Simulated assay, not measured.
Amino acid sequence: MRPVLPVLTALLSAATPALAQDRDNARYSADATSHWSFEFGAGTDNRSKGTSKTDDAPYVFGEVQWNAASGFYADAEFETINSSGSRVETELEAGWQFSAVGLDFDTSLSRKWRLDADPGQDDDAWEYQFDILRDFGPVDTRLRLEHSPDGLGSTRATTWVEARLRWPLADRLRASATLGRREQDNAPDYTGWNAGVAWSVTDTTALDLRWHGTDAKDLGSQYEDALVASILLAF
């Protein structure tokens, strides 16, 4: 049995008040003030763009971010992985949130590193991300574009386009569904998706239960369907 429940229990017991949410919940506002934010969490599998980065094993992650009143932000992140011989991936990111023509935007540039990767594996990469966000009543939507001119590991240029819908089910409980397409040089092209629910247990702690899948299951275990549980603590 995986040691997931003890990890989640320990994290829950360490929770202190703050707001657990991903960045696009706190969109740019003219009334915003500059502040620091911190996030820590764990999950039963590290899923990115539908595929596993930990070979269906638990992982932990953390982030520290500076948010300026102008909408600019910068952050440093880490997450545990099992890829290219590396067990830890780190990232530095800088971006800008702004509003125009009735839409919200989030654009960023990041640099990623895989620590102690196997010789011959590409252990660093640049990645550009651009989000367009719009609310329709209680439903919020996001269209995301991510591109790297030379990805991590053996992957060369890669592009990911994703659409997400998210809506409330009850107080502190929301459902969401995501569908994306990944085109890659020197790696498989595939479609990935996920659907699930997120529960804000307290002002500091959120739990997420989500089903991930791709149309490339025959390419290996990392592309197979999986039910993933995770916890996020934000300060």
Rank of each mutant, 00 (worst) to 15 (best):
D116C: 08
W36L: 04
D185S: 10
S86Q: 12
L165S: 04
D75M: 10
D225L: 10
L227K: 02
V228Q: 05
S176F: 07
E79W: 03
D203S: 12
D75T: 14
L5N: 06
V64H: 00
L103A: 03
R144L: 13
W167R: 04
T16D: 14
L12F: 04
F40L: 08
A26M: 09
R27S: 00
I132D: 02
L232A: 03
D55K: 15
S37Y: 00
L12M: 13
A163D: 05
D124R: 14
P58N: 10
W199G: 02
S200G: 12
A30T: 12
A74C: 13
T44S: 14
A234N: 11
D135G: 04
D104L: 06
A74Q: 12
A69P: 06
A198L: 06
W211M: 05
F78C: 07
T159I: 15
S200R: 15
S108N: 06
F136Q: 04
W126P: 06
A195S: 09
A76M: 13
T158M: 12
T44E: 02
T44M: 03
S29R: 15
S29K: 14
D45N: 06
A117H: 05
D118F: 00
A32Q: 14
G137N: 06
E162A: 04
G153N: 09
W66G: 00
A226D: 14
E127L: 12
T214I: 12
N46L: 03
D75K: 14
Y73H: 11
D140I: 03
R182Q: 15
A117E: 09
D140G: 01
V60F: 01
S48W: 05
S13F: 02
G62H: 08
D104I: 01
G50Y: 01
T90M: 09
D185L: 07
V201I: 15
A10F: 11
T107N: 12
R114W: 11
A206G: 09
R27E: 14
L11S: 03
A69M: 13
T204A: 14
Y59M: 02
A229L: 07
E183T: 12
S86N: 11
P3Q: 11
T80C: 05
I132L: 08
P17F: 05
D215H: 08
P6V: 04
T54M: 03
N82T: 10
R47C: 05
A157E: 15
L179M: 10
Y28E: 01
L227W: 07
W36N: 02
E224F: 00
N82I: 05
Y73D: 02
R134V: 00
A177C: 08
A42H: 06
P3W: 00
R27Y: 04
G95A: 09
E63H: 01
L233Q: 06
L219W: 00
D218F: 09
V197Q: 05
D122M: 08
R87G: 13
A226R: 14
R174F: 02
G41A: 05
T107P: 08
F78V: 08
N67I: 07
T80Y: 09
L133S: 00
D185E: 15
T141H: 12
E224R: 11
T80Q: 15
R156A: 06
A14I: 02
S29H: 13
Y59V: 03
T54S: 13
F40Q: 11
D203K: 15
D185G: 03
E91T: 14
S52L: 07
L92N: 05
D189H: 13
D150Q: 13
S86K: 13
L103K: 11
V161Y: 09
A69Y: 10
V161N: 04
